[in-house]
Design a binder for these strands. Structure first.
Length: 545
RNA sequence: GCGGGUGUAGCUCAGCUGGUAGAGCACCACGUUGCCAACGUGGUUGUCGCGGGUUCGAAUCCCGUCACCCGCUCCA
């Protein structure tokens, strides 16, 4: 199966169009058509129902407390300074002129070598005017110690082969980003003799201006993730909803990243929609909740029909963890466009990083006071007021039993990525009565259209009867009425849209008020009373637990 | 960001070394038929991705540009 077929089907059937297509489109942006918008709505509604309104019981069988939130896309820019995005979203990149490989400019170290006896004169030169070193060697590395190690090994080899003089000494080790622009910047790829470009800056946050003045004081950003809106409202939610730890705050909303290179249909878009939970818990219980959410989220995808081997949870290794995270599981799906599974969702153990950062930058107290624990222990401690007890200067670890920054587990899912995975997973070509067909085998909960209603032929009162059934059903379900063309063609059209059920009114209906219910996946029909249709659909569309 | 490919009707595509754009499917109407992409007859559909150039004349040749697909690269 190739991606082009899926892209073509998505456009032909009205799932996904290129954004602003009549003007030539815009790289990294996509529009959802009539079927696509229903698919996305079903994904979001399933998530909200299954995670917020009625989440599975906790690790010890307890009810979960979950509340919702809907934050502004544009927030005070200090939010992004605190979160690290203003700094973190500014990546300096450099590229090899020869082999065209690209590197983060802070991840390539240059080792500058000069003759030993000249080292002193180099070092006394004014900064910025330091002459070009005699030799520069480059290493791709996360830190200077590792780069030094790599250099030492290679230097020994080069000296042995008499490629370099033994009389050279290391003047300095700097990243490509820090190096003076006139220095040589060799490509770190072994065997490549090319030179790297001067580092260029790629800011992944979209900038805009708030108000009339377009100056630096008015700069704001379109949020690159919905999560920070939850953290900055943590105290508001605590103060207005009577939730107690552990509890979760959920949000669905758009986020924006000015990706260097959008690719793979909607997979890496510059505008996308996220479904995120920040689940706040006691630090001692965070590991338990991390495992809980990881398992709940994997099960959720499987319950919605992503059952194949293409779904894969992957625990991130310590070297790829983001700076704030002490554990992350990527839930990945093997899309047809890639050799390796790609991330649908990340379940991250973020510790107290975010609340700590916002507490630091805002100067506001974001700690949680555990009233239950205090009520339990206060008599034993001989106090009624926590404040009075604090005045006795108890040890910090004891205070932290009652007042602390909660830890956070963050299941963060991409709506558009799941929609794309659902389409790829559902796409199938098979044969019915010797004729090939294209069918989308969506889980019924995700299917944009739940059922189609057809009169077998357009006479003898069948259209009237069919239309009346359609009108009744559409009060409760997304249903589609079609009386055009041969019945087989109408079935196939619905197969391509992923409609799980088709109901046909035929001449027998006119006699005994029974209809046929045809299922998409096996093309089998059953007969049932017309009055029982709504109940039957409801039964077949109810989520399994 | 680099390299390769593609861009012509709603869809799939044909259109040679330049000569005023076609097929199948779809769609609409009428008739026939009646449970898995039916048949007959008739009909609608195009700034040939966009912009420029060469030419008497460009879908076709040249330059530029945009978008998508594939491979690298990248993905805090």
């Amino acid at each position: 199966m190739d991606m082009e077929k899926i892209v073509a089907l998505c456009k032909r059937r009205g799932f996904i169009y290129p954004s602003s297509e009549i003007y030539g489109g815009l790289n990294g942006f996509w529009d959802y058509g009539p079927l696509g918008v229903e698919l996305k709505r079903n994904i979001k509604e399933a998530w909200w129902r299954d995670m917020v309104l009625d989440p599975p019981p906790g690790p010890d069988g307890e009810e979960l407390q979950m509340v919702g939130l809907d934050c502004a896309i544009i927030m005070n820019p200090k939010v992004w300074e605190a979160s690290g995005h203003v700094a973190g979203f500014v990546d300096w990149m450099t590229e090899c002129h020869t082999c065209k490989r690209r590197y983060r400019a802070d991840k390539v170290y240059l080792v500058a070598l000069v003759p030993e006896r000249e080292a002193a004169s180099y070092q006394s030169a004014p900064p910025g005017a330091m002459p070009k070193p005699t030799v520069v060697l480059a290493y791709q590395s996360d830190d200077p110690q590792e780069a030094r190690k790599l250099f030492d090994e290679e230097y020994a080899r080069l000296v042995k082969k008499q490629k370099l003089s033994r009389g050279l000494t290391v003047l300095t080790i700097v990243t490509v980003q820090q190096a003076p622009p006139h220095w040589s910047r060799p490509c770190p790829e072994p065997g490549c003799t090319g030179e790297l470009t001067e580092p260029r800056k790629f800011n992944l946050m979209f900038r805009t201006f708030v108000g009339a003045a377009e100056d630096d004081s008015a700069v704001a950003y379109l949020r690159p993730e919905t999560a920070q809106g939850i953290f900055v409202n943590f105290v508001n939610v605590l103060g207005t909803t009577r939730v107690k730890l552990p509890f979760g705050i959920a949000q669905i909303g758009k986020a924006f990243r000015n990706e260097i290179n959008p690719r793979h249909f909607t997979f890496r878009s510059r505008e996308f929609e996220q479904m995120e939970i920040e689940f706040f818990c006691h630090p001692h219980e965070s590991a338990k909740w991390y495992r809980y959410w990881r398992d709940v989220r994997i099960r959720w995808y499987m319950q919605l029909g992503i059952r194949s081997e293409r779904l894969r949870p992957r625990e991130q290794g310590p070297e790829e963890l983001a700076h704030y995270s002490c554990g992350t599981t990527d839930i990945e799906y093997l899309f047809p466009f890639a050799d390796e599974p790609q991330e649908l969702e990340g379940v991250a153990h973020r510790g107290d990083y975010d609340l700590r950062q916002h507490q630091l930058y805002s100067g506001k107290d974001l700690t949680y006071f555990d009233e239950d624990a205090w009520e339990r222990d206060k008599h034993q401690l001989g106090f009624t007021s926590f404040r009075d007890w604090l005045k006795t200067n108890p040890p910090p670890e004891q205070v932290a039993q009652y007042q602390f920054l909660p830890h956070v587990i963050e299941p963060s899912a991409g709506v558009d990525r799941f929609a794309l995975a659902a389409i790829c997973e559902a796409y199938a070509e098979d044969t019915v009565s010797g004729e090939p067909r294209t069918v989308l085998r969506f889980h019924p909960r995700l299917a944009p259209i739940k059922a189609a209603v057809f009169p077998l032929v357009n006479r003898d009162g069948m259209p009237e009867k069919a239309y009346a059934l359609y009108r009744e059903l559409k009060r409760e379900f997304v249903v589609f009425y079609d009386d055009k063309g041969a019945i087989g063609r109408r079935y196939r059209r619905q197969d391509e849209a992923g409609t799980p059920f088709c109901i046909t009114i035929d001449s027998q209906t006119m006699q005994d008020d029974t209809v046929t219910l045809r299922t998409r996946d096996d093309c089998q029909q059953i007969r049932l009373p017309i009055r029982a249709v709504a109940d039957e659909l409801r039964r077949r569309l109810t989520p399994e637990r």
